[in-house]
Design a protein around this nucleic acid. Structure first.
Lengths: 341, 341
DNA sequence: CTGAAAGCGCTAACAT
DNA sequence: ATGTTAGCGCTTTCAG
């Protein structure tokens, strides 16, 4: 292993000088000539600084933890990619952890953080397990950024403009001529769930239509919960002609259950889902979706975490750009007939 | 921060003794009484060892990198979970990276490894980008375990018993009474692709049936490629009554394209797919699948990586347990009629 | 403008 | 059976 003293020897300077040149110390004053010598010595020896030594010295690990409820979720992949990209640019590394560990055994995080292996945490809490698991983190001395959940608390947070996304979906159905539009939402115990519902109601209002309670569900975002939502809807009254589903995973379930009932999409009912992932294109019919800036959410989370570093007050940002984008496929069309459940 | 000398002071022993007690040094000989004192001192002060210092001293980072082609893939989530569990038990941490970085910019891995931030790499190469990207790793001094790809090379590898999985699928269709069975496989350039195809042919042979070239495709595992496979199949001749799809993602596409052609599943054709993930249950009809031991693959990868540590010769293991498990849903039934494309 | 030296917290070899 | 000590490779204050 080639170390800093090897470089300094070759360049005929002190180790300290090498360190300063290589890390681009702003208060650095070296002759252009020395700098060149250091740089080329480092290159010649293909010097790579040792991370552990640097971490020990600076007490920063350059590791961030990304904790999500479910790695198979549509949301995750894009989010992770955004986080990774941003992390890469800042020479950080993303450590993966599943959120269950928070519930059952928050000691994992505690320990890892205590050991100094993690400089910050990007956390998406499962809708199910709220406040308490967060508080367990708050009193720890790691910066935390909460993703897609409550904003306004003592912990910094980042959310998407869910309402805007839902509005795009509603507008799309409306412009196709739908006047009865239902909503398959997430749990009203979750902040995202409430934001999306509010967005839905506002969007409907803005267009001069009416919401009907029996056209709205709040079962959840999973595929199974989507199926259940349709069952509920059908047990109530007439179906709307259009349906906004607040999550693509749930929309798969919705589609399945609708098929199971021998109804046709979009013939009997049109469907738009929030979030756009590859499998939106592999359903039948291919699903019209609204693509949200998940990647930007991930990259912004990393940035926020780093800006956060000083013990500044918590920040709460909303990611609005790029704006939600309608991806029209085949699950929506002009309304035809109305179906009784 | 409480350090080891704090603990040793409180326990009235030397730092060295504390280190040995706490890390369970096998060659340790301390009186039971001292050990107790050390342990309780550590507990009282809630001592947590500093990871950077330990890493510097031992030159092991306790980080493993998990590199996969696509985080949204069915395979990934279970794999990652298995790896994580095993890693957690051994006090290791899993660092996430996307495989694209290997193609475009292998410097990321090189650098991170050079800095000593990674002790080992679990690598699933994309079918597209083979040998070269691996070789870039081999001459590096990190242990690497290759997942789901070629076995037998200079790098350790771990594969599933794909043939066994395919056989379960074929047997299922056969036992339902299917005698014409097709195969939607992966690229024949990839090792998994070839293993699964071989498994298919052997399984068909073993049951005294015949394979027909026009019933087999090798387009790929993605949803879009699944659609394409069906298009190819239909452009050829009569469809088989049953179809084994070598990957669940492709199976979604298969299902979509079949619907698009106004054929019915399982009425016109039965489908079984390899791999079982939540969305198998959210398709219409819900997909009959074969669940493979992906979790074990992940956990075994971690183990292998660690056993590998010494520069022992590369090992090549096949994960056979738990055995592939048939998950019967609704995409398979007794054959009815035969369809002409 | 550059060098010297201390020390981050831990472990392991060597003493006792 | 336990204590002492050197040093992992780096950064950074303090002198020069």
């Amino acid at each position: 292993m080639v170390k800093i003293s090897d470089v300094s020897a070759r360049a005929g300077v002190s180790p300290g000088a090498v360190s300063r040149v290589l890390s681009g110390d702003p208060t650095l004053r070296v002759s252009e000539e020395t700098r060149e010598r250091v740089l080329s010595a480092a290159r010649d020896l293909s010097y790579v600084p040792n991370h552990a030594a640097r971490a020990l010295r600076t007490s920063r690990s350059s590791n961030l933890a990304l904790i999500v409820p479910d790695v198979t979720s549509a949301v995750f992949a894009e989010l992770a990619r955004g986080a990774e990209e941003q992390a890469g640019m800042r020479d950080l590394t993303i450590v993966l952890a599943r959120a269950e560990q928070l519930d059952t055994d928050s000691s994992w995080l505690r320990r890892v953080v205590g050991e100094g292996r993690i400089d910050g945490v990007i956390l998406q809490v499962p809708d199910s397990a709220p406040e308490s698991s967060i508080e367990a983190l708050v009193d720890r001395d790691v910066p935390v950024v909460l993703i897609n959940s409550m904003s306004g608390g003592p912990v910094s947070s980042l959310v998407l403009d869910d309402a805007a996304g839902i509005r795009v979906a509603v507008d799309h159905l409306h412009s196709l001529g739908h006047h009865s539009i239902g909503f398959v939402g997430g749990s009203s115990r979750s902040a995202t769930g409430r934001r999306r519902l509010r967005g839905f109601i506002d969007a409907i209002d803005a267009l001069g239509m009416e919401t009907r309670d029996e056209w709205m569900t709040d079962v959840g975002y999973s595929g199974a919960e989507g199926r259940q939502a349709v069952t509920e809807l059908l047990s109530r009254s007439t179906l709307p002609t259009g349906l906004v589903v607040a999550n693509l995973n749930a929309a798969l379930g919705v589609l399945a259950e609708i098929h199971a009932r021998d109804l046709r999409v979009p013939g009997d009912i049109s469907i738009v889902a929030l979030h756009d992932v590859w499998y939106a294109d592999a359903t039948w019919p291919p699903m019209t979706t609204v693509k949200m800036p998940l990647r930007e959410l991930g990259s912004e989370a990393v940035s926020l975490l780093l800006d956060q570093k000083a013990d500044s007050p918590p920040e709460h940002r909303v990611i609005r750009a790029p704006a939600p984008e309608l991806v029209v496929r085949s699950s929506t069309s002009v309304p035809t007939k109305r179906v009784t459940g």
